[in-house]
Design a protein around this nucleic acid. Structure first.
Lengths: 109, 109
DNA sequence: CCAAGAAACTGGTATAGCAAGGTAGCTTCT
DNA sequence: AGAAGCTACCTTGCTATACCAGTTTCTTGG
């Protein structure tokens, strides 16, 4: 049981939430997401992101379209669906509640 | 991929953090923890808690002592160790950073 | 003694992140 | 044209953890 392991566990599940938010703001492809997450100090690697995106797609929470690139191979640009928007609203509430619960427990003494 | 499943995933990893905090405040046994977590709407069941406590014990982050009960079988009263206190400080920082990162991502538009 | 309850524990299942490797298309340089 | 390198997407094997549904152990009360 190491700190880094626990940190990973704490991040778990938040990724899906964050990525849905990023996609909800407009069309993006994988590298865009990684850049933004990294900037916010929420580290992600490709091997984590791609399966996650596929899960979101399978669940019809996001959709994508292929777009040719000026430099390099084509990209999958993701956008959020109606179902995804609804789902995201639930997650927003869950997150708020979770922060509140944690705050309640960790700030007591 | 259901909302409830995602909610579970978001809660994952926070449990360890919350439980360490509860133990850090003073000696408690399993039912105390469950009561407090339930009160804070952080639902946990016994089958989750006991393995977690054993992990913390194995990692020397907490220790326990048996205490006779007036009514019923003896209880394991847990308290935090020095290592556990250090660990908890790291987790506090991790949590703050995580909240901040998530806030950054989810509040943008 | 036996039933009931409390406390601690266990095995099986599912999910998710990570590390590492693989495939294919495009660009650049010789 | 050919080779090298980059970019983007995808897959596999591993590990860790929570949940569910029991099981065991101990104590008390009828």
């Amino acid at each position: 049981m190491t700190a880094s392991n626990t940190q990973i566990q704490m991040r778990k599940g938040l990724l899906e939430f964050c990525i849905l938010h990023i996609i909800a703001r407009g069309e993006v492809y994988a590298s865009d997401m990684i850049d933004e997450l990294t900037e916010a100090k929420m580290i992600v690697v490709e091997g984590t992101l791609y399966p996650l995106l596929n899960r979101l797609k399978t669940a019809s929470l996001v959709s994508y379209k292929w777009v040719e690139s000026d430099s390099g191979p084509p990209r999958k640009y993701y956008s959020i669906t109606e179902d995804g928007t609804e789902f995201l609203q639930i997650l927003d509430k869950t997150w708020d509640s979770l922060v509140q619960s944690t705050q309640l427990i960790t700030s007591k003494r």
